[in-house]
Structure formats: structure tokens, C-alpha cells
Design a protein around this nucleic acid. Structure first.
Length: 450
RNA sequence: GCGAUUGUAGCUCAGUUGGUUAGAGUACCGGAUUGUGGUUCCGUGGGUCGUCGGUUCGAAUCCGACCUGUCGCCCCA
């Protein structure tokens, strides 16, 4: 019996061309991370569900992929009585990781005696979310994270902005780094006398550019924010000016809010550091930037590409107490995450992938038969010794078929060495783009292909 | 998780109010061309019409459920 080949919803296969491009993305990011002294780690695809549950909010718990226990998972469980969610926690003790930050927090606590703080690590691995797939949204996707843990210095925030700037400069993507601070958002809640509604305010305000002022107000009203508070929120919707102007305005507004002033101070310091590092990318203070993940406590980042309709391609922030739940208190961290597939889509849409990724093979030897193979193989080794990527067609087949093969693979040069060439100790090199061919000795051949 | 929409050859798509044996282009394979691909000409093969069930004398076509892709909500890289 044959089965129709298929893969689960929201997952993908990658072809060689796609992998060349993906590896280019990973390699570029890795190089920048390592240059800034971040070290690689990996964590398992599966974590204990107890590590994951409750870290991403109610919505996040729903989006966690749970792994059914092995063996008799029904043992001691009434399969009918429980609600589906409660049942799941009884028959599943493992789940696929939802992001790289929480597993990292677990890693730090578990290995606290083996690592030296402050600890800078990077991690590039797939994560899984049981979300409904859409364009640019998958159930399995890769994140490239850089985090520093064990330091509260805002120099780290600045360094992450510098890394971001450098990465996207290498890709040739024009971006703007948007920043905000949870303390500013708390300050806003203070000013509105609605500190208890901070989460609602954050999620609503985050949608401002998408659904507009009126809808944000309506949503906040539905969530029980007073009309008076909504009135006071109005000035924040049209918050224009340069970063320094915005900060000055906020300082006046936050005269009574200690936490708000702290936020302003942090942003100011971050921008000072950014200046010292001479970060060339535009950094914009956007007080409507909130981000859903509720473990952020300080700086918040988001990176948007200009000239493309794709959403944010990177996001991150500071979290003061992520390790606390694993028993390690007073350790603050800050990190940023780059979405590989989003970056792929942007590079693709803007046609920014380097041409050199298209075909790594420089030349192919036509296979004329056994005697000729021997002659070609010796030359092939010489080419490879010179770091020229080359191959030989493995079967003796018609020349036309071998040429088609080279053509389809986009190999730029074909080398023919049959009886005629062997007699003269030569090789015929054909340029597949122009169709020109010339007869050369081995030294000249290498020279042409280098 | 909610709402809408989509599925016909490897790929892009036709297919009449339900009616005989489901078509085209392209790709593939073979030949014209036994040492020359990307251009041309000829020919061959390839389809459980997403899956299962229902209505009907008869279903690619109508109905239902599920699966997949896409769009909006939620959320997010």
C-alpha cells in the first residue's frame, strides 16, 4: 500500500536552493553574534511541559505542542472525566519548545555553577507553535536569539541594537529599530490611574497602527477602562517629534510617576550608548510598541523592514525575573530574536540574495566512458585541490543528457575530455552561458576556473 | 480556538444547467541530432478530479464531515 506523501500542517521541506539561502542567513547572523562574543548553546526540542506552561500567557499555553506520554498513558487517568486541557496535562509531560528564551532561562538555572555571569549566548534552532498557519507564519520555524543574562547594564541593550544594525546592514535590508520600555507603559498606566489594567493597555495600544485610535479606545472600554482614563490616554496617540523631544514630553507627563521617569531615564541612557557606539541605523522611540510577551520588564525592541509589507522581523526585550520561577532570583537578562523565515521573505521580496548562492558547483566533467573517467578523475582531483567546486557526471550517458543536467543545475562550465583531448593531454572547457569553448591544458583549465 | 475561501497531470490552469472515454500549456521521457545544453519539430507516458461519506439512473460538478493552502480575528517570528 502506498501513502500519499505529505507533511503536517504549517511545516515545510526545504529544497537545495532554499537551504543555500537559509544557510546564508544563519551564517551571516552567526558571524555577527560571535564577533560580539556571544557563545552558542543548544537545548532539546522537547522540554518538560512544566517548564513551558504558564510562561506565555493563556494564549501561549494553547499554542504549545504537547507530546503524548510513552507507554500506557491512560494508567490512573479517567479518560472521560477531565476537560481536554486538564486531560492533556495528565497524559503529556513533555512539550515542544515555543521559543528559545524560556529554555535558555531554564538552562542558566540548571547550569548556574558551570557558567560565569554575565553570560552571553546565542541559539539558532526551530521552535513550534500550534498556531493557524498563514503567509509568513508557520507551525515550525527558526529563531536566532542572542541574550545576555546576569547584568542590568543598558550597555547590553545598546549592544543588541548594534548587532541588529550590523546584521541588517550585511543583508542590505533597510530597517528601523523601534524601542520602548515597559516602565514607560507602566508610567502611562500610572498617569491614567489604571495600574491594574497595564496588560490590557499594552495589548490594545500595540494595535494602534493596525486598527486605529477609535478601535483601540473601544477595546479598552470593553476591557473596563474608565472614560476618564481613556481621555487621558489621547495625548499618547499622537506622540510625534524626535526622540529627545518625546523624552522631554514624557518627563513632564511623568512628574508624578516614579516608574515612568525611570523608563525615560533608561531610554535616554540607551540612546546615549547607541551614540557612543555610532550605530548607523535609525532608532525610533515608539511609545505604542508593547509586545505581547508579558515577561518583559524594561526595554522592548522591534525591528521593521522599510519598503516591505512584512511585519516585524525581529523582537526582544529585557526580563528581570525570568529565572526566578526556576529558583534563581535577582538575575536580569535582555535578549533579541531574529525570525529566519521573515528575513528570508524580505530578502526574497527585495531580490537581495547573493547570486553566488544559486549554484555552488563551478564545473562538471562529461563522462565519456571507463578510460576517459580515469583521465577526468585525475584532473577533477587537481581542481578540488585548488578549492574549485567540481564534479563528474557519474554515468556514461549521452552528451545531450549530461549537458541538460549541467544546464538544469545552473553549472556555469562543462569540461569535456574524450579520446581527442586525451591524445593532446588537453581539456575542452565550455562556457554554458555564452556557448564558447576552448581547448586547454590542465594548468590553463585551473586558471580559467579560479 | 472562531469566521470566510480554496483544492483537477510534477507545475500553471480549462472543464457548459449534473450526462459517454476529464483536456491544454509547460515540465518529464524517447526520437529528428551515436561529441554539445539553453532555440525548433515529432512522438510516448503520466489523473484514486484533496479524502471519506451522502443525494442521483448517472457526480470533477450538488450536500456534509475531515485534510491542506490562503485571508480576517486572536496571537505572533
Amino acid at each position: 500500500m502506498t501513502v500519499k506523501p505529505s507533511i503536517p500542517k504549517g511545516t515545510r521541506d526545504f529544497t537545495p536552493v532554499e537551504m543555500m539561502r537559509r544557510n546564508y542567513i544563519f551564517q551571516t547572523i552567526r558571524t555577527v553574534f560571535e564577533k560580539h562574543a556571544y557563545l552558542p548553546i543548544e537545548t532539546p526540542a522537547m522540554e518538560n511541559l512544566s517548564t513551558l506552561m504558564g510562561k506565555y500567557g493563556e494564549e501561549g499555553d494553547r499554542l504549545l505542542f504537547k507530546v503524548l506520554n510513552s507507554g500506557d498513558f491512560t494508567h490512573g487517568v479517567d479518560m472521560n472525566e477531565d476537560s481536554p486541557t486538564r486531560l492533556a496535562t495528565k497524559i503529556c509531560e513533555k512539550g515542544l519548545r515555543y521559543d528559545l528564551t524560556v529554555p535558555f532561562a531554564r538552562f542558566v538555572v540548571q547550569h548556574q555553577n558551570e557558567i560565569t555571569l554575565p553570560f552571553k549566548r546565542y541559539q539558532m534552532q526551530p521552535v513550534w507553535r500550534a498556531d493557524r498557519p498563514q503567509k509568513g507564519r508557520y507551525r515550525e520555524f527558526y529563531q536566532c536569539d542572542a541574550d545576555v543574562i546576569g547584568t542590568t547594564s543598558l550597555l547590553n541593550e545598546a549592544e543588541l541594537m548594534q548587532i541588529t544594525s550590523e546584521i541588517f546592514q550585511k543583508f542590505g535590508i533597510d530597517v528601523v529599530i523601534k524601542i520602548n520600555n515597559r516602565k514607560i507603559l507602566s508610567g502611562i498606566a500610572d498617569v491614567l490611574c489604571a495600574s491594574d489594567k497595564i496588560t490590557d493597555i499594552c495589548t490594545a495600544i500595540d494595535k494602534l497602527d493596525k486598527i486605529g485610535k477609535e478601535n483601540v479606545c473601544q477595546e479598552l472600554m470593553e476591557r473596563g477602562l474608565s472614560c476618564e482614563a481613556i481621555d487621558k490616554l489621547q495625548p499618547f496617540f499622537d506622540f510625534s517629534g524626535s526622540n529627545t523631544e518625546k523624552l522631554a514630553k514624557l518627563e513632564t507627563i511623568f512628574a508624578e510617576s516614579e516608574i515612568g521617569l525611570k523608563g525615560v531615564e533608561e531610554i535616554r541612557k540607551m540612546l546615549e550608548y547607541a551614540e557612543m557606539l555610532a550605530i548607523p541605523t535609525e532608532i525610533e522611540l515608539d511609545i505604542t510598541l508593547a509586545r505581547g510577551l508579558n515577561y518583559y520588564t524594561g526595554a522592548i525592541f522591534e525591528v521593521k523592514a522599510r519598503n516591505v509589507s512584512i511585519g516585524s522581523i525581529s523582537g526582544g526585550g529585557r526580563y528581570d525575573n525570568l529565572t526566578g520561577i526556576f529558583g534563581l532570583k535577582n538575575v536580569s537578562g535582555v535578549g533579541i530574536s531574529y525570525g529566519a523565515e521573515r528575513i528570508y521573505d524580505v530578502l526574497n521580496e527585495l531580490g537581495l540574495f547573493p547570486k553566488s548562492l544559486e549554484c555552488p558547483v563551478k564545473a562538471i566533467f562529461i563522462n565519456f566512458g571507463e578510460k576517459e573517467e580515469q583521465y577526468a578523475l585525475a584532473a577533477l582531483q587537481q581542481l578540488r585541490a585548488e578549492d574549485i567546486t567540481a564534479e563528474i557526471y557519474p554515468d556514461k550517458a549521452k552528451i545531450g543528457k549530461q549537458m541538460t543536467f549541467a544546464n538544469n543545475k545552473g553549472i556555469p562550465f562543462v569540461i569535456m575530455a574524450g579520446e581527442d583531448e586525451m591524445k593532446e593531454n588537453a581539456f575542452t572547457l565550455k562556457n554554458m552561458e555564452t556557448g564558447e569553448q576552448q581547448k586547454l591544458n590542465l594548468a590553463k583549465l585551473i586558471e580559467e576556473l579560479q
